[in-house]
Amino acid sequence: MNDIQALLQSDKFKLSIQQRQALSPEDAAKFVSMFESAVRKNQKLLTCSPKSIELAAHKLADLGLTPVDTFNQIYLYHRWNDTVKSNECVIDVGWRGYATLAYKLCGTSIESDVVFEDEGFQCEKGTTTILSHRVNIFADRSEGKVVAAYAKATLPSGMVKYEIMTKLQIEVIKKISIEKNKKLTPAWVNFYTEMARKSVVKRLCKQLNELEKINSIIELENEEDYFESEPIDTSKTAAQRLTDRIKSNIQSKSSAAPAISHEERATLDASWREFEEGEELLPVRPEHEDCVVVL
């Protein structure tokens, strides 16, 4: 804890944030103060390695997201790393974070919501897609009553695109997350509806060629070494550096072989087969973990 406090109060750390977001010293200090406040909301984050705390802050700064936000752009939680035998601070970008980046980078407005039982929902597809959601403020809005999630993207041209996922499809994504992380992440435990919205937003982005930059950021979210190894080009703005990194990621993705093992592919294929066959997915209820939603 003392090491983390020393890190967050160091001039070197503040300077790194200032350079990454091209901020004034005063604004960089505000960023650090807000990030420190977000970390202190969860005492378990104070048990994380200082390096992971530093990388989490750098990741936020590089993506252009803020640590304290009324739009809930990110989640912070801790995860045990068997390699270094220590907890590490992990950032989970929420659907509102992707929506913010889509607007900043592509001029695209994204909305998303969840449909519950006892609510009216209708979607008609044709030359023009019509989606209607009649919200019932008295409906039971618990996880078990979720029926579907949907996302809407309004492109700069005015064209509107929709994506819908059923509860079963959302559960498949949740199960894949469990298999990838070896357990259910705190975000799925504490913020199921937000993760459902994130799932459908990510699927919508992947289907739109206009949002290639956002698709690249979705992949960057899982890169754990990028923010540690990339040097900072202080002659460029934060937005320019992020754009350069996105272009590099797109180029490397097109030329590199898929980074997935046969075992991982078999696991993913099995999960999708369960969905296609309509099998019931058993809910997983691991031990509760603390998670901070950045408000």
Score class of each variant (00 low, 15 high):
102 A>F: 00
73 Q>S: 09
56 A>G: 13
176 I>Q: 13
104 K>G: 02
163 E>L: 07
157 S>M: 03
122 Q>R: 14
85 K>S: 11
141 R>G: 04
163 E>H: 12
79 R>M: 07
166 T>N: 08
140 D>Q: 11
121 F>N: 03
90 V>P: 05
140 D>G: 15
166 T>L: 09
82 D>V: 07
109 S>L: 14
145 K>V: 01
155 L>A: 11
112 S>I: 04
65 L>Q: 04
55 L>H: 10
118 D>E: 14
184 L>I: 10
94 G>R: 06
90 V>I: 12
171 E>F: 03
74 I>D: 03
112 S>H: 00
92 D>M: 01
96 R>G: 06
117 E>P: 01
182 K>V: 07
120 G>F: 03
157 S>E: 05
143 E>R: 15
132 S>M: 11
54 E>V: 00
80 W>Y: 13
113 D>G: 15
127 T>S: 13
97 G>K: 01
163 E>V: 09
121 F>W: 06
150 Y>Q: 01
109 S>M: 14
153 A>S: 11
132 S>Y: 05
148 A>N: 02
172 V>N: 07
105 L>Y: 01
164 I>P: 06
167 K>M: 07
94 G>V: 01
71 F>V: 04
48 C>W: 03
53 I>C: 12
146 V>S: 02
149 A>H: 10
123 C>E: 07
138 F>Y: 15
192 Y>I: 10
60 L>S: 07
194 E>A: 10
73 Q>T: 12
53 I>H: 06
104 K>L: 13
109 S>V: 13
191 F>H: 15
101 L>I: 06
137 I>A: 14
